[in-house]
Design a protein around this nucleic acid. Structure first.
Lengths: 341, 341
DNA sequence: CTGAAAGCGCTTACAG
DNA sequence: CTGAAAGCGCTTACAG
């Protein structure tokens, strides 16, 4: 590795002190046009770039943001959304002159690797994706007034900054859409055994739509299949279709549910979009790869990433603020699977 | 933000010099059992963690690896593979006590943001995903003997470390598989207008299988549809099926090609897996979401990530080595779409 | 085995 | 407007 040029080299080349060089780099003090010019051309000539870590040392600011990604985020963000989220975060992080450090949580143990980034003072702030419910590590961050925001975990933690999608509204949107198409008996398949808030919230939205419509819910219509990625949707579909009075439409409460429900529906050769309406919460490539294409409520993942990043960086730059919460609405995408009846 | 405890605090608490504290932390000099104990307990008592950036400053090592992700990597890695790649990289980066900085290339301009990470001395090494063909920025990295590896770009750059999948072999595998099922007239749809090496290589593998089988290739069977994400596969499918003597099986040269070929095949109600064999190069969720499930040659994305990470870190820790290349084989996954004939 | 001191490459009061 | 100097939190020869 070749030795890199430092601020000293620039100072010598321009015949000034390193302090003055620093002033023009940071524009942090008035400098005469003349010396300014000398310094600028010295910088150019030597191809000088300040060392971010030396700057970090002196300014007590690394300009690094950590993103903690849970090992299996069965939650609202499936793999298919992860990249969009990253792009959302990266876009603002970059434009605000920060860098993003990715940290995948390794194991199921309580020891959270994201705390290591914090402890070692590597990062100025952190975005915490779907921390586990029993995870209380981040309380240390609160105590330390360390800038961070929690993503996608409608945690009842009023002292944290959060950004999330409005899951209740997502459930409501899907249900309302089906109502408007004339459906009255709508099946709802809840994801993840109701183990997460988002799951519960989506179901809640379903209930609100019914309430608003003034129709009593037949509880047989809401299915909470036992946990387990595989087959939960299929299981629930069979329950629903086995009812004395089966639903005319079904809401799949998550991408995973949709996947397995769809498989079963196709296996049974049910006429989706003809004999049965279908809509998913979570939009994924699956929805358009399949015939008929599936209506869905899309999670604004990119925007969630953006907002989260803005939020941490605001905290870093403007100092701690009172905890903010941003709740973004889901977006209904009409396609071919939610027949009118 | 609360003031963090430093090495000075520990030294004072233990009644020793900061040098000695440093020795026990880094195990870089013999220390008597007694002082060792005092220091360890002081560290524990104060909850001290060294500042990674101060260490970086002193050791001239940040323990940060940059990953440059192109804006649209139409290349061999689709979005569906990206997460696996990240996991592969992250797993070894983490276990080797480094951190990963993500850098999405912003624009089509020649100015490559990844050079910024290098210039600012933020990172110790870099993984460069599918650099554009005209990108010559990384030559500066070579000159500076900066540790980096190029991913997924069979660039004819003998002076770089690279890791990639063996695309020729992928094409070969797919074709061979079809041969073994009795097919003799196999259509090949080349991705991305042959603009990338990987695309060309996959086609090359197809040709080799034919050569090996001693069968002359009917050039009508190899389609190079005009570029453009949408419809290229559909376009080629129609060409192929319109032939006087149409193929009995088709190879989709990439995930994108498969997606649009599949759509067209379904629209025309062709009996995939019955009347026509189909196999994709690139394995993606699409292959299992669809009925019949699609045979595919999988790219070992996770492993590619791992190897790449090991390679940069080796360079960082052991100093520059002669350029290494790792070419991993694709993996044939048999499913339901490649009928025997 | 341990301490004092220089140095890593910057920034920033403080003088002048 | 500019320079000299202290300081950011560590590591590492160098003495002893």
């Amino acid at each position: 590795m070749i030795r890199k040029t430092t601020i000293k080299d620039v100072a010598k080349e321009a015949g000034v002190s390193i302090g003055t060089v620093s002033y023009v780099i940071n524009n942090s003090a008035p400098v005469s046009a003349d010396t300014q010019k000398k310094i600028v051309s010295a910088i150019k000539k030597l191809g000088y770039h300040p060392s971010s870590i030396a700057q970090g040392m002196a300014k007590r600011r690394t300009n690094l943001i950590g993103l903690a990604v849970p090992q299996n985020h069965i939650g609202a963000f499936s793999d298919y959304m992860m990249l969009d989220l990253l792009r959302g975060i990266a876009d603002v992080v970059t434009s605000r002159k920060f860098h993003l450090i990715l940290d995948f949580q390794e194991n199921e143990k309580n020891n959270c690797s994201y705390m290591e980034m914090y402890n070692s003072k590597t990062i100025d702030g952190m975005i915490l994706m779907s921390p586990r419910r029993f995870d209380r590590n981040f309380e240390k961050l609160i105590d330390a007034q360390f800038p961070f925001v929690i993503l996608n975990s409608s945690i009842q933690q009023p002292s944290c900054c959060c950004v999330d999608v409005d899951n209740v509204h997502c459930g409501y949107l899907a249900t309302k859409h089906l109502f408007e198409l004339g459906h009255r008996r709508i099946g709802f398949i809840a994801p993840d055994d109701l183990q997460y808030y988002f799951s519960f919230d989506r179901m809640e939205g379903y209930r609100r739509a019914y309430l608003e419509a003034g129709i009593a819910i037949d509880e047989d219509l809401v299915q909470v299949p036992p946990k387990g990625k595989m087959g939960a949707g299929a299981f629930a579909v069979n329950k629903l279709l086995g009812l004395a009075e089966p639903p005319t439409a079904i809401i799949a409460g998550s991408h995973c549910i949709l996947e397995s429900a769809l498989t079963e529906l196709k296996r049974r050769e049910i006429g989706i979009g003809k004999d049965l309406g279908l809509i998913g919460i979570d939009n994924s490539p699956l929805c358009t790869w399949v015939k008929p294409q599936i209506d869905a409520v899309a999670i604004p993942v990119y925007e969630i990433g953006k907002e989260a990043a803005e939020m941490v960086i605001d905290q870093i730059e403007k100092g701690p603020s009172s905890p903010r919460r941003i709740i973004l609405p889901g977006v209904l995408i009409k396609r071919e699977s939610a027949v009118s009846v």
